[in-house]
Simulated assay, not measured.
Amino acid sequence: MSKWDGIDEFIAVATTNSFTRAAKSIGMSPTHVSRAIMMLEQRVQAQLFNRTTRTVKLTDTGRIFFERCERIAQERDEAIALVGEQGEPQGELRVTCSTALGERFVAPIIRRFATPHPKLGITIDLSNRIVDLIAEGYDLGIRTGHVTDARLISTQVASRRLYACAAPDYLARAGLPKCVDDLAQHLCIVGTSSTWHFREAGSDRLYHPKGRFQCNSGQAVIEACVAGIGVCQLPEFYVLPYLKHGMVRLILEDLQPPDEPIWAVYPQRRHLLPKIQQVVQCLQLELVTAMS
């Protein structure tokens, strides 16, 4: 009997909370999975699951055992993949990115990257929530701003500029703000970020905008701005097309914040995999050009 016997079945049950779903996920019968778990519990001399007719849940011992087994199994699979790939990206690549950045730039770049690699499967999840890459099984995340998770490696792939702007007719009515504090006298259009960034007197200055129009779509925010609803701050790719045609005007230009970095982040144990190395290199080469 191998010391690995029952580990994959255990991980599958712990992940799916079901013997039936676990069996389907690993291509085995429920009977096989049940027998493997029973033999594993006998080997470790501990109950790993609390079972009822309707639920399967890890015991406290099972939870600790699962954390160790999952990490070891991932490292085993990645070691095999690292040798087996021999420089060719293959397997599954799961990526998470914010919706607008993903739709406009990241998804097209990764699609082009995947085209010459038929052994590579791609899943891109576009969401504005902060995803726990490790807990949720993602290979790569695209993040802006500061990354503080010590479990992740961060590689800068681009940067973006934030512009504050308003429509000319709005400014004709409300006046031109000359400092950050003047924004309190203006109608602010709030997007996904509840904090606006400026650079004032050599220091970073944060402003929490308030207004009667709020939307989690940057495109909707810039269109409201063009319509004269108020002032907004957005990444340059939203603002520049309207700025070019005089439909908006930049405000507080002398208080422009530093460019915001865009990072590719990935779990430390995956940084040697060809699929990670090569997609990050591709993003570094193409994202700056695509956003300019």
Rank of each mutant, 00 (worst) to 15 (best):
I251F: 05
D259C: 08
D169Q: 14
L171M: 10
N50L: 07
L240V: 11
Q45K: 13
S34P: 01
Q214K: 11
T123K: 14
A14R: 09
S193G: 13
T31F: 13
D254I: 05
W196A: 11
R173V: 01
I110H: 02
A81S: 06
G102C: 00
L152S: 09
F113E: 03
K57N: 09
A264R: 08
G121S: 12
E92N: 14
H197Y: 15
K119I: 00
T61H: 12
R270D: 05
M38W: 12
E200C: 15
H146R: 14
F49M: 08
F49A: 11
H117F: 12
F213R: 00
T192N: 15
T61S: 14
E103D: 07
R143H: 09
F113D: 04
L287E: 03
G202E: 02
K3R: 15
I109W: 02
V157K: 07
Q45L: 09
H32L: 08
A174C: 09
E78W: 03
D149W: 07
G145T: 08
E88N: 10
E67N: 14
Q156P: 11
A36H: 02
P274K: 05
I124D: 03
M39V: 12
V83E: 01
V231F: 07
E41N: 11
N128H: 11
L187P: 06
L93H: 02
H197M: 14
L283W: 12
A81G: 05
A100W: 04
G230D: 03
S25C: 09
L287K: 01
F66P: 05
Q156N: 06
C282I: 04
S2C: 04
A46Y: 01
H245L: 06
V221W: 07
T289S: 14
A172L: 14
Q74D: 07
P30F: 09
Q86S: 11
R43E: 06
I189S: 06
E253V: 06
S2V: 12
Q233I: 02
F10K: 07
E88I: 12
L252W: 05
P177E: 13
R68A: 10
V288Q: 15
V248Q: 10
I64W: 10
L287P: 00
V265H: 02
L252M: 04
M28D: 08
L255P: 00
V95M: 04
S194N: 14
S127K: 06
T192G: 14
E200T: 15
G228H: 06
E92Y: 11
D169N: 12
D132W: 10
A224Q: 12
S25D: 06
E41L: 08
N17A: 15
E9I: 00
E75K: 12
K119F: 10
G6P: 11
L176D: 10
K210F: 09
A290M: 08
A135Y: 05
Y163S: 05
D204W: 09
A79L: 04
T52E: 08
H197W: 15
M1L: 15
R212V: 11
H271K: 13
V231A: 13
A81R: 09
P177S: 04
Q268C: 05
R112F: 03
